[in-house]
């Protein structure tokens, strides 16, 4: 294979951290670790053959490198070719036709803004995904009314995630029927439940989960952990340029304040006095959108930086890494 080129599949991208690199597989949604030297070699591998790549190394080292390459080939991260120019790199642009792509609406028993009005405004903004987070138990008819309203809209809202407080009067079967009735509801998580439960609809992304964790307000969010990592093209390319949590997001907190995130302190206005459209076009509101990981201390040296969802709500100062992240890229360890 010496006179061939080794080429990573375009969907497998190297992210160099301080001490090691990750090879992120955007197609199969996974990643592996790579030593930095191997990552360096792979980054030059378009223009030089495997023999040329290893020529500067001792026989022993060259053998180790070949073993590594064979491992990448065997696991389908890379392939050997005679014509590297036929296999261009993946275009890493991210763009969207929608001014707002996702929203969070928080609600509890003291909230009194009109959810349906907020939904109408989001639809006008082109928002495709809404997360509703209800901190208190609401009856089934309230849920039905809200979802029926979304379903009767102009069809811009394409997926809905529900985070609901456990209500002993609503059965699992009712929730399952609800998901069947409103296919846009892709995920229902019942928090503060007496027991855990996990149901994934066969052959689809829809899920119903019960979790015992008690969630009473917005401070439950913002944890960073490998189980929340996302290795996909949309998320990765967006993270390269933009904030991986807040880009094109708008949030209405339980009091009706319009924010970048319900857990952030700064309010840009209230749904009672101003429109989401107006707020979402303010430069101040959009400022945080462009806060990508390369601008954030510590994160910029982390090998997980384009897979992990940032948090700007819980931070000591503007450019700090998320306070709820326990990973240290300089020691490669989780505290």
């Amino acid at each position: 294979m010496g006179n061939k080129y080794i080429r990573l599949f375009a969907c497998c991208l190297i992210v160099k951290g301080n001490r090691r690199a990750t090879l992120v597989d955007l197609q199969r949604g996974d990643f592996i670790f790579l030593p930095l030297q191997i990552a360096e070699l792979l980054l030059q591998s378009n223009s030089v053959t495997v023999a040329q790549l290893t020529s500067a190394y001792s026989e022993e080292d060259a053998g180790e490198i070949s073993k590594y390459f064979d491992h990448l080939i065997k696991n389908e991260y890379a392939f050997y070719t005679d014509e590297p120019e036929s296999f261009p790199l993946l275009c890493l642009d991210w763009k969207t036709p929608n001014h707002i792509t996702n929203a969070i609406i928080d609600y509890d028993r003291n909230s009194f803004f009109n959810i349906r009005d907020v939904v109408n405004q989001l639809e006008q903004l082109g928002c495709a995904t809404i997360q509703f987070r209800f901190y208190d138990a609401f009856d089934f008819s309230f849920l039905m009314q809200t979802l029926t309203h979304v379903a009767d809209g102009i069809g811009k809202i394409r997926s809905i995630e529900l985070s609901l407080c456990y209500n002993p009067l609503i059965s699992k079967l009712q929730y399952l029927k609800l998901i069947n009735l409103f296919p846009r509801v892709i995920s229902v998580v019942i928090h503060s439940a007496p027991d855990g439960y996990d149901y994934k609809f066969p052959g689809s992304i829809h899920e119903l989960r019960y979790i015992q964790q008690k969630i009473t307000n917005e401070t439950h969010c913002g944890f960073i952990s490998p189980e929340y990592f996302r290795a996909n093209k949309y998320f990765f390319t967006e993270s390269l340029q933009f904030n991986s949590c807040l880009n094109r997001k708008i949030a209405v907190d339980k009091t009706g304040d319009i924010k970048n995130c319900p857990a952030m302190k700064h309010s840009f206005g209230s749904v009672f006095s101003t429109s989401l459209l107006e707020i979402s076009h303010q430069p101040d509101f959009q400022k945080v959108w462009s806060m990508n990981k390369d601008k954030i201390e510590v994160c910029k040296d982390c090998e997980f930086r384009y897979m992990c969802t940032d948090c700007r709500a819980f931070i000591p100062d503007e450019y700090s890494k998320p306070a709820k992240c326990k990973y240290d890229p300089y020691t490669m360890s989780w505290a």
Binding site: F9, A10, C11, Q27, R28, E76, F79, E85, S86, F87, P88, L89, L90, C91
Partner: peptide
């Protein structure tokens, strides 16, 4: 489970 690799290609 293990989708085929789909990558951009430059035609001659």
């Amino acid at each position: 489970k293990k989708p085929n690799r789909f990558v951009p290609y430059n035609l001659p």
